[in-house]
Design a protein around this nucleic acid. Sequence first.
DNA 1: TCCCCATCTTTACATCGTAAAGATCTGATA
DNA 2: TATCAGATCTTTACGATGTAAAGATGGGGA
Lengths: 242, 242
Amino acid sequence: MAKTHTKSETSRGSRPRSTTPAAAPRPPRRTRSAKTETPYHHGALREALLQAAERVLERDGLAGLTLRAVAREAGVSHAAPTHHFGDLTGLLSELAAVGFRQFNAAMTSACDAAATPLEKALARPKAYVAYAQAHPGMYGIMFRTERLDHSRPSLHEAAEASFAGLANAIGVIRQEQISEDALTMNQGAVIARAWAMVHGFTMLLLDGRLEDILARLPEGTTAEQLLEAMLTVPVAAKPPAI
Amino acid sequence: MAKTHTKSETSRGSRPRSTTPAAAPRPPRRTRSAKTETPYHHGALREALLQAAERVLERDGLAGLTLRAVAREAGVSHAAPTHHFGDLTGLLSELAAVGFRQFNAAMTSACDAAATPLEKALARPKAYVAYAQAHPGMYGIMFRTERLDHSRPSLHEAAEASFAGLANAIGVIRQEQISEDALTMNQGAVIARAWAMVHGFTMLLLDGRLEDILARLPEGTTAEQLLEAMLTVPVAAKPPAI
DNA sequence: TCCCCATCTTTACATCGTAAAGATCTGATA
DNA sequence: TATCAGATCTTTACGATGTAAAGATGGGGA
């Protein structure tokens, strides 16, 4: 699927530094008469670039996700993305917005599919972790990158929706209305705890830092089982909720 | 303090591409007779580079922490670090090890200073977050970088000590012995929860993602207060520990 | 029909990581 | 003590990246 990148860019005109200019006859490239050639105007380059970025991210990871790699994957010049996203921060931010939308959709549908209250309470964090495991690169873009511009409307909106979904889920579980503009200390603490717990678990899991714990647990314990235990095991009797 | 970097590197020999070679007479630079000049052999370059890296990190953040910047800060050629650390991953890994040692020391001394059991239980997570807030760059190196080589003994050891300290603290709180090589599901869940909670809280805090919550809490609530509430507030009555 | 401007390409440049070769010093050995 | 192998540091070089600026192209309104 469009894996024909790397075809040029590096081999074509990488170093025309000291060649005599106008030396190569250079065929009248891309005459519109040759219909098979891509037209000069892509038409939907922005979306194509975002999809290309997603492919590059899945294939080569965060380190491989560069502006030029995305342009190659999309089959355009390396400077084309600039016009649509400004700079790398712009591209990453828009890609993160895409990720947040996927992320929110996954959690919403998981919650909808749950039946019992217990399932419903666990469905969201499970879907959270499952998404991150299925799309570690995307999760990295969303939560690990420092080059994000949260003032971009699309990103701000999608990330906000994610938080709203969390707060709402907490409200449902606690069977109370959670106001939009004011929280009690108790509510804030519970929301922060839920988010921090699941986010922290996910980061540690993706970084392989839970391997130690998993290896010491009963044979064959999965990360999901550990997550569920973490969420359901009661806190110790005496001391605080640690 | 050694802020005289950027003095050359870019202006000196950046583009000698097509200049006639051996054009500049080039004075016999660095004769050993001039005692004030730094000797050819630095003597303790490795440690100097690590300290320089720490300064660069605090000054310019994670994005500014490059091999060449560290070399400039230390006043050596840009390729000097290679000999001591191999590559960027090596430098980052050793720096992360330094960070883990600082980190562990901060938590240990905070625990030692605590008196009551409640204080003791809260001292560790508070010191955890406090360190991250005081040294966000270092915390980023330790937990946010993907270019870390955990097989390096110094890093592995320091990170291991951090985990051992956590497990030990949990054992003290629960007043039970935590085995080195086997965990019950309950123990694993509690340890994972503690770590995930504090780590997740820290990441969200450093990323500014708790601003929303903090702004909605009673006027003037600090992150530390939210952390304490998060750790001490009881879980909801009916559903699981969310 | 013509021209403005959005879109895309070319070209250029500073910076980065890394490799390889040269320069310099240290310390062990004879 | 003289020497020399190896450790340490510098120079030089190269490919890759992000970004700026100028040129090419074509769509759509005047």
